[in-house]
Design a protein around this nucleic acid. Structure first.
Lengths: 295, 295
DNA sequence: TATATACCATAGGATATGCCTATGGAATTA
DNA sequence: TAATTCCATAGGCATATCCTATGGTATATA
């Protein structure tokens, strides 16, 4: 069964004539006659009675007619609405993000995206950098919000901003009111930090190692919120990303920016190299870059 | 856009690989690759990103995929359900009948047909012979219940029974109780009869002319029920088909069969010559023939 | 790093398909 | 009876589909 055969069939049924149908289809009468016959052969039924003067649908032809119309209608819909669907951003976007960024960056950005493209479908995956990279390479997600460094031949990285790491202290901590804190001041402080399964945990460790600062780590957790709770209870201090600090409204914690050589992490979007970035992804890029760096 | 292109497209989208898709479709990899490219050209969009290691859908591809599946599903449905629809008699039947037969033959027959094929659709047309013949020739109706004679090259006629014409009299009429009535006894009776637009009216006139019986026609009507009413009021007698008499339960009228050379009309089904008789039509034939001639 | 493997694209040729014109037979109309 | 209309068939041409062979690129392995 071929689409043009269905078109010819419908034309012949409507015209009740092979000749007129061929005329309307812009082909010669024998061609249409031949295609109808072929359709009859493949379906194993007779579609028309040839009456010498025109043709008339048989039972089988009457049964096929509405189906043929449905099929052709679906084809037409596809051809004409494909582009408009794309224009309206009715697609799907799968976004990944590391757990230390997701809760601070995604909600606002995805909310905005839904506003811009009400018909879009968004899938979120929160996972560690390594798994996100793998997901991008395997085309399971379209884009990921992560931090540097990323070394992978198949990944394109756009650094869209910098997220400073602040010192997080209990409100009553003496350092909090002092001002002008440097890394050196933290040397003897007990610290609470993230497990190194998080890239943020690795980044902090790396930063301290670079500054030859031996951390006195009293606890490693797997969630930032747990770290914050420990700090609140006075078990130690911590380095916390600014984006997380901005979301912390608990009066029992305070944040201080280190006065010199303040550590930070990059905020980046990772894409699959070679893939055309989906329209929704491009808009997501704009939105999140704008949120990170308000002009 | 062609159906095989959609098939290849869906296969490639599902396999995420041109090679594997080609394998599954039973064609060579370059062929499938080429058809995908063609589809992209006709639609004016890129459907896949070629990643060296497999392919991945673009926005456009993702938009097309459900549509392609819908189209192919509709095609499959048509191919597989066409026959079953025919077997279940889900078709349409357009039946015609002359007004002097329709009310007595159609209701029971069509009711039976609906019982046999609950999904069928029936259209009834009640009209004069000439118009019915024309409707059959033009394929507007599939079959007609009519009477002889019919002379038309494009009509096949099946005589399925004979309908005697009875003398219809008011109950109090002296002839009714006499028995052994012949045409001669009607010679001086005032008669009421149908207009000759009805074939029955023509048949009765013809019959009387053949017997050299000059009718004393006091009234011509266009409906049998009007004739009956005139008879009831004693304005005249009439010849009424037996099938109508059987439906007449009014005690003020009586019917007598003529004892010799009783007139009758044929009951026939008319078909378009050259058309394959629809399944529903064949069943209708069986039912009505059986109703007319109960074995 | 070098080699082998997997995958998609291109090139060129064989085959098949769709469409054409010409023509014949059947039915209808003048 | 002749002219017309309509569908089917025959044969040829152009195109499209599919094939094999091959090259380039990315991935996996030695």
């Amino acid at each position: 069964m071929e689409l043009h055969q269905l078109r010819y069939f419908v034309a012949a049924a409507e015209a009740e004539s092979i000749s007129r149908a061929a005329d309307r289809c812009g082909i010669a009468q024998p061609s249409l006659s031949q295609q109808i016959r072929k359709l009859e052969t493949t379906l194993g039924v007779t579609l028309f009675d040839r009456l010498g003067r025109g043709v008339a649908l048989t039972d089988a032809g009457r049964a096929l007619l509405p189906r043929a119309r449905r099929i052709l209608g679906a084809v037409e819909e596809a051809e004409s609405n494909l582009q408009s669907d794309l224009d309206e951003g009715a697609g799907r976007l799968a976004v990944g993000a590391i757990p230390t960024m997701a809760p601070y960056l995604l909600p606002a950005a995805l909310n905005q995206l839904r506003t811009d493209f009400p018909r879009c479908e968004i899938v979120v995956r929160e996972d560690f950098t390594e798994n996100l990279i793998e997901a991008i390479v395997d085309n399971r997600i379209d884009v990921a919000v992560i931090s540097t460094p990323i070394e992978h031949d198949l990944i394109d990285l756009d650094v869209i901003g910098v997220d400073p790491l602040l010192v997080c202290l209990p409100t009553k901590h003496p350092l909090l009111s002092r001002g002008g804190i440097t890394l050196r001041d933290l040397r003897d402080q007990p610290t609470v930090t993230l497990h190194e399964m998080h890239c943020l945990g690795q980044q902090i460790s790396g930063f301290c190692a670079a500054k030859r600062l031996a951390q006195n780590v009293v606890c490693r957790t797997t969630q930032l919120s747990t770290v914050l709770e420990f700090v609140r209870l006075g078990l130690g201090v911590s380095l916390i990303p600014e984006m997380a600090a901005k979301h912390d409204h608990n009066p029992e914690r305070g944040y201080v920016k280190l006065s010199r050589q303040a550590p930070s992490r990059d905020i980046a979007l990772a894409w699959r190299k070679g893939r055309t970035r989906p329209r929704l992804g491009l808009r997501f890029f704009e939105i999140i870059a704008n949120n990170v760096n308000p002009n």
